[in-house]
Design a protein around this nucleic acid. Structure first.
Lengths: 204, 204, 204, 204
DNA sequence: AATGAATGAGACTTCATTCAT
DNA sequence: CATGAATGAAGTCTCATTCAT
């Protein structure tokens, strides 16, 4: 039985190629979708031959998986930055706003990716798990951070966070989608933030 | 350019076939996705020959368009029912709950469809427009209905509604995606409803 | 999951195509071997498009299997004819000779096929079984026929037949392989026949 | 035409590598067949780089040729041993038996090789010649040895030997093939030996 | 001399679409 | 009008061979 050996890039030049392929895959999947992108295109755009692609990746789906990994890693980094900047005394509203702006910036670049990958997640356990565990991770970090604060509603906090995350996601998704004006964005953002504040704050 | 004549079904038997094809397409696209479904399969499931498929539909994408139309029409019907049942004096909370339950029922059946179609919408102006105008239609009906009420916040009402719709969508999507328990659903629903209430009600 | 449906040819024209493909496969496998023949060649030689090949056959190996089936069926027919002509009183020597001549005629046409298929049988359970059960069938028929006779050695008759079969096989193979002259063939045949006679006859 | 310089190994380390490659090729061709073995595998198994393989061998087929050479050389050695042990007074039956046992031992290890190579011989003059001259050599040695004896049939002795060789070959091939029991083997062997004795002995 | 990454032709297979019957 | 056999472009993947390092 032939074991499709996949080279693990270690040398600098190898890593460059590997990354170029992931990058090319990412770009093309966003532009045209997964199914309308063929391996030859990816190779060409990455500036390598088809053979090289298949020496680093098992098959086309494997490229997709790696692309999604890279995408989620980047997203995670963005959130981490926001979390790191969160200081103790900071107003909740401003935290939420920072998140919203950060996700919006990310989505602006990656709307296509996000939706395409999400749909693919539907048919693929492996991809779905990646998305799920990504959301969990983000929410848990937020949970840890916010549960320290006094004015936060502790009952069902995780559920509250999940909903909040959903609101922000939808906010970014929707306003980009509909190519909203700056004013519409501000309005929607303001409403969302106050909605989330109400949800997360302790009203005793 | 040759315009492939596509028959418009008028006779009873023709309509039956047309519908069977759309139905078959819908089922298969949900189960396997658009790209993994081939026209022969659709024809077989619809109980017709491939030739017949191509006499009613321009090409494979055309089937998809019609399938999405049918899907959105069904969805619209569900909402209409809820809107029709909305009486003047009904509590806002209970209206929202009815919507949430209705959408959830719909999503439970159609999660796959919804996500698949949404991703396809990304690459296709025509499909995207259908989704947009569907949401607009629903929101406008709601707007018309709710703006009559006294206790509703009139400022940015449309934006408020859009956000509310987003919250409910996300709620349903998330709880189905994550195959939540009944209890988790109830909690999330309760939180969402109170959040939306706050958003929509006039706090003077 | 897509079930590769393979059309079963029933109509006359379909059967013609099916047969043409098997014939083309047979010819090319003999000329160039299985691995050096590609599906496009087979299609071309059969006068059909590649698609047609894949509508009648699961994959390339499937063509091989059918080719072997056809080959063995033809071989069986040859032997049946000889068996049918075997009359009660016929001398054993002349029976053996008839078999040898028949197998030689067959090998002369099919030497390449025989050897190629035999080697493939080695790596493929399915093909091996076909060859084994073919030999069994032939030997059992012979067994049935010969065990009626009085002058035949009954002890280990099956083993004796198997060896005899081997001798004849090797005889044909060798004389064709080495492109022997008619005289060499006659000599070898004579020796083989007397050897087999000694093996099969009862020496009391 | 560019003649790819192929190094002829002379140094001790070079010879070791050369042999390792032939050995690896032999093993893999036996296990998987020639066409399912690729050069990278051979290199890996031999513990050398692909480049080294191509510095000792013109191409993949060249490896095959050398592997077959090695195989035949080994086979020849086995027979030589048997021939050397053949003393003047030894019974013919026991000589035959020694041969049969020796070939059987060899086949047990090399069935796969033998059949694979034989089939490849079909398409390749060079390989075919190797096999032919191998058989000739063996038979001639036997001829020289046996023609000294008195009780041996001298008429068509070479043809008789060739047939005998065939019987033994088939015996070994068949009983291995069918994974026969020891008892079956003994029976078949006994019958074969007596058949060959009859063929080779002078019955005046 | 040795390495093994890179190349790219070519193999197998699928399937949207057409069209003769 | 209906059928479904036929087409063949296009996609995925492999691997013998080369060559820069």
């Amino acid at each position: 039985m032939v074991t499709n050996e996949v080279r693990v890039p270690k040398q600098k030049r190898s890593i460059q190629k590997y990354d170029a392929i992931v990058r090319a895959g990412y770009d093309l999947f966003c532009q045209q979708g997964y199914y309308k992108t063929n391996t030859a295109e990816i190779a060409k755009r990455a500036g390598v031959s088809v053979g090289v692609v298949y020496s680093y990746f098992q098959d086309k789906k494997d490229i997709l998986i790696q692309v999604i990994d890279a995408y989620l890693m980047e997203l995670e980094q963005r959130f981490s930055t926001v979390l790191d900047e969160m200081t103790a005394g900071q107003e909740l509203e401003s935290v939420i706003e920072r998140f919203a702006e950060s996700l919006r910036a990310s989505h602006r670049m990656n709307q296509a990716a996000h939706d395409e990958f999400l749909a693919l997640a539907l048919r693929n356990e492996e991809i779905r798990k990646k998305f799920d565990s990504f959301e969990d991770k983000i929410l848990q970090e937020l949970f840890r951070e916010l549960s320290k604060r006094q004015n936060i509603a502790k009952v069902h906090l995780m559920e509250r966070l999940r909903l909040s995350y959903g609101v922000i996601e939808h906010l970014c998704h929707d306003t980009i989608w509909a190519s909203a004006t700056q004013e519409e964005w501000e309005t929607a953002k303001g409403l969302s933030i106050s909605m989330i504040s109400t949800l997360l704050l302790n009203h005793t």
